[in-house]
Amino acid sequence: MSISFLTRPADSDDAAVVGRVWEALRTVRDPELDNDVVSLDFVASCEVDEHRVAHVRLRLPTYFCAPNFAFLMVADAWDATSTVDGLSDVDVELIDHFAADAINRGVAARAGFVHSMAGTEVGEAVEELDTLRRQFTERALMAGTDLVVRPLAKAGSTPEELAAMTLGDAPDSEDLTRLRRRRRELGIPSSDEDPLVVDPSGRKVGVEALPLHLRKARSFQVGVDANTSICRGQLAVRYGLSTTDAS
């Protein structure tokens, strides 16, 4: 991947703009893998020209990655980059994908997924992607619960103790920060006083239901890990990256 300032030497302000673009892209994530497009190496290039227009090119592991996921990432990248101070415009495109033309036109026109796919060779879309986004955020919540709670259980916390814990009782970590974010995205309270283990509707999970809930949470995290490994390998093979580049 690359990110740079085009056509003139970068001064400190130019570098700050580029840095803000980079950080904005880190807020964009693959909905299935629950990881950001920068860490996944899905940013093929990100450049800012002399007119302070950001040009972002996104790539995916395969030519036939699901168009709904691809649309979400392109749209989110456009929205995130558009908030960066110091830019006059943004230009975000997906490359090397069978639905790239339809997705890029639709996102640029703010047309929505259904309208963007209508009449294209990609096929008709049945509905917009809000429901899909929520479903994968709920899965991310479950997977995140596993990452936070499993170490506590391994350290000796009993089911009764885990069921009684609040978010403030859990050790501070990146996984806990991510779990709080996913809860907020779902409209679930995420303060220190709120229960640590809740279901995707926000209801506290009691001690009797806890073992099954945690087994489900573990299965979601195993799925995320497996799919992430597959996607990293496919991306590395497709673009001739080393395993370090694609991780």
Rank of each mutant, 00 (worst) to 15 (best):
I3R: 14
T7F: 08
R8P: 03
P9A: 10
D13C: 04
R29V: 13
P31D: 07
V38Q: 04
V38G: 02
L40Q: 02
F42D: 01
V43Q: 05
D49P: 04
H51N: 14
V56H: 00
R57M: 02
L60V: 10
T62E: 13
Y63H: 08
Y63W: 13
C65L: 05
A66V: 07
N68S: 12
F69T: 02
F71L: 05
L72F: 04
A77G: 01
T83I: 04
L87V: 05
V90M: 06
L94H: 06
L94N: 07
D96I: 04
H97E: 14
A99E: 06
I103R: 08
A108K: 15
H115N: 13
M117Q: 13
E127P: 01
T131E: 08
F136L: 14
F136Y: 15
T137A: 05
R139P: 01
R139E: 08
A140W: 05
M142V: 07
L147T: 15
L152I: 10
A153L: 14
K154R: 14
A155Q: 15
G156Y: 04
S157Q: 12
L162K: 12
A164D: 03
D169E: 10
A170N: 12
A170L: 11
D175E: 15
L176E: 10
L179M: 12
R180F: 03
R182V: 11
R183D: 10
E185I: 02
G187S: 07
P195F: 11
V197H: 07
V198Y: 15
P200C: 06
G202E: 06
K204S: 09
K204G: 02
E208D: 13
E208N: 06
L210N: 10
P211M: 07
L214Y: 04
K216I: 11
N227T: 00
C231W: 11
V237A: 09
G240C: 04
L241S: 01
T243I: 08
T244Q: 15
A246P: 05
